[in-house]
């Protein structure tokens, strides 16, 4: 090979380089995928709004959510009570605003914890294989066999329905799902030639797991997280509805609906408001989950 042809090669490569589209940075790519879709943008705003409402609940709520008034029961919406009052004369809007604290914390906390523990277990099982995998998989199968709601009722009945008990229960209930997905994805990613390439290059095992495995299994985990967030809000509502979640008189979206249900012939506003709040948040979280998945997938992230 003469120098002349090397020079030609580089001249050609320069021409080619000009042609390559610039690689978007992480922030640009994020902005592109997440924020260019109107639906995602709206969902994002909705979730942020709800979080702000939960944080600033005491400032935003027009009334004390616990204050009962025998004089004002079952009122229809008015200037003073935008969503009316319930059978104890409590302001529905204020209860909804304060209730968002419990509901959102449940909705976000347990799935995040469960995603952490589940991914840890699943990646360990999937990457190590052998006896470790067998033990973890059997435990997961056992937990999977329990319907999460039943598990929650069981533990709540045994330990009482305190806030942290419920979080722990839901975390335990969701973990197997994450572990299953993480394990299956890990086993698939482990077969990728670039993982073998990393091993051959001398990369340490923890580094392989954090650099090569975890980022590549993140997409399904995030989708699952969005899915379970929605479920979690729903389950908290169910538990509260059954009387073992958030304890009355403290409000959560679930027990607003429960109280409303026993009173539905007098006023429908609490049911409608609680139900709508749950629906909107769950929908928004799902939409964001889908977009984040697309963002994490290098094939669609063009």
């Amino acid at each position: 090979m003469t120098d002349a042809s090397t020079a030609e090669a580089s001249a050609e490569l320069v021409a080619e380089r000009e042609a390559l589209a610039p690689e978007p940075g992480f922030r640009e790519a994020f902005a592109q995928v997440i924020l260019e879709r109107p639906s995602t943008r709206i969902a994002f705003v909705v979730v942020v709004l709800f979080i702000l409402i939960a944080v600033f609940a005491p400032l935003l709520a027009p009334h004390d959510p616990l204050r009962q008034s025998i004089l004002q029961i079952n009122r229809q919406p008015s200037w003073d009570h935008w969503l009316g009052t319930d059978q104890f004369g409590r302001d529905v809007l204020s209860r909804l605003i304060h209730g968002s604290q419990n509901s959102l914390i449940f909705g976000l906390l347990s799935p995040v914890f469960a995603a952490f523990f589940g991914t840890l277990l699943g990646v360990t099982a999937g990457y190590m294989g052998g006896i470790v995998d067998r033990v973890i998989s059997r435990v997961i199968d056992m937990l999977m066999a329990f319907p999460e709601l039943l598990l929650a009722i069981l533990i709540a009945a045994a330990l009482g329905g305190s806030f942290w008990n419920i979080v722990v229960v839901l975390t335990v209930a969701f973990t197997p799902g994450f572990a299953r997905v993480a394990r299956a994805s890990t086993m698939a990613v482990k077969q990728e030639p670039y993982v073998e390439a990393a091993v051959a290059a001398g990369v340490s095992t923890p580094r392989i797991i954090f650099r090569h495995i975890v980022p590549n299994i993140a997409a399904p985990i995030v989708v699952l997280m969005a899915l379970w967030s929605a479920s979690s809000i729903r389950i908290e509502a169910t538990l509260s509805f059954l009387g073992i979640g958030t304890q009355p008189p403290n409000p959560s979206w679930g027990n607003i609906i429960r109280d409303g249900l026993s009173n539905m012939f007098a006023t429908q506003w609490p049911i409608a408001a609680g139900g709508l709040a749950i629906t909107i948040v769950v929908l928004a979280i799902s939409i964001i989950g889908d977009s984040v998945r697309d963002f994490l997938d290098p094939e669609t992230n063009q």
Partner: peptide
């Protein structure tokens, strides 16, 4: 060190 057959799969995307 090693060089691999598959130029597509052996580099993390």
């Amino acid at each position: 060190q090693m060089v691999f057959q598959d130029p597509f799969g052996s580099l993390s995307p």
